[in-house]
Design a binder for these strands. Structure first.
Lengths: 229, 229
DNA sequence: TTACTTAGTGTAAAAATTACACACTATATT
DNA sequence: AATATAGTGTGTAATTTTTACACTAAGTAA
């Protein structure tokens, strides 16, 4: 129904599960709340949707305000609207996840007043979360597990140039299980969306691996044919 | 972010793509609007989320008010919130799809004032839709196409007892392509979630087919193992 | 030079997918 | 009673995909 109606006393927000990969671990960005309710608890970053913002813009803004990053891959995945999910009123929230390559350490920016601080925490060891944020996170992880099997999202977590071992590592962390090296390589190469570079990994104290790049052009040509992991 | 905030002048609604299957065609339920904007246009049924309703409850209510049906499979799938999607103000809408077995003809109930009438229209021949409802429908169809490959949702569109040909027909309509009869049967039976009944189809003027039932118990046991079409 | 660490590679067996055609059965028609 | 009709139900061989599995090569560090 789309007619104009008296407005209701509800608030519409966006919460984000920002997945980051630093080459070792899969992490998410959490903020430590400085306000009631759930003061001192960890929570997913979020905000109210502004009156002239699209939903995607709003999600990008939240991410930008925390990290200073733009142009990050984000995807809306579920709306949570239980009438009691917020102790102080009706707040319907739309969840987004983002996939971020973590580079140096200076990803974080000064934080707004409602949070004390923000940190990247490994998903293997998360604290208790405020509100229904555990549920939101769980569903987000489930979504990327599913999506990584069909869409080339793993590359969003890696630097532009990466080794096959790094790529496999991302798949293993997201899927939560070990994969066979030879079979992984065979399959991922067979999709034909990787470009092998003439370059090698640097700064490692062992044999350097060949670098690859995700080839968006080739991927675009494949469209219709689904990747299937 | 989850603090209490001044409320914003936005409205939160739910729109539903109600897919129905009558044994022949895949249809959706559309209403013909009786109010501006988009008076006389066809639109997806929808409504405002009530203050004490969960999102799922709200979707179920919309469906119930139109069809009198309860206990129907519904799934939330995407939020649409472009600031300009509604000409008269900010309306963020959450899309649900439902899967309904259409029985006799008397599925529809009297309609609220904002609509002239409601009809089941075949998806192969849809009219122009109001607002961004074409986009909402497109995404809904895309979702069920994807989901029918991994989850046992086809059964929601069929009567409790059905033939394998009917089941194949549902898959073909949703996926939009023909499937091989023998291969389809082999695969669907191999999942082990169908129970073959001792009963035959009735009222057909040719050899009657064996009836099957979806076996929820067996399916529950399989959990973890994904169906893959 | 040696020890260490990760890179990179092939094959055979098993399983899944595809392509494909005809005889059977129930009913309706004459 | 015979025949036409329309959809049911079934098997196999070829191909492709998936799986399981272990060693040598290359580079660095000591």
């Amino acid at each position: 129904m789309e007619q104009i109606l008296p407005h209701l006393d509800s608030v519409f927000s966006i919460d984000c599960v920002l997945f980051g990969f630093d080459g070792k671990e899969l992490k998410i960005l959490l903020i430590e709340r400085n306000e009631e309710p759930f003061k001192d608890w960890w929570a997913l970053p979020g905000n109210i949707v502004g009156p002239d913002e699209s939903l995607d813009q709003s999600a990008s803004r939240i991410l930008y305000e925390l990290t200073g990053l733009r142009g990050i891959y984000m995807e809306q995945y579920y709306a949570f609207g239980d009438p009691n999910r917020h102790p102080q009123g009706r707040v319907i929230t739309l969840a987004y996840y983002a996939l971020i390559r973590l580079g140096g350490d200076k990803e974080l920016r000064p934080i707004s007043t409602y949070a004390k601080r923000a940190s990247w925490l490994p998903i293997t060891d998360l604290p208790k979360l405020a509100f229904d944020h555990q549920k939101i996170y769980d569903k987000g992880l489930e979504k990327i597990k599913r999506r990584i099997k069909h869409q080339p999202i793993a590359f969003e977590l890696l630097p532009e140039k990466f080794t096959l071992t790094q790529l496999q590592h991302v798949y293993e962390l997201v899927l939560g299980k070990k994969l066979d090296k030879r079979n992984f390589r065979k399959k991922i190469v067979s999709f034909g969306v990787l470009k092998e570079l003439d370059e090698k990994q640097k700064g490692v104290s062992y044999r350097a691996a060949t670098l690859y790049r995700f080839d968006k052009r080739k991927y675009a040509k494949l469209f219709g044919k689904e990747i299937s992991f």
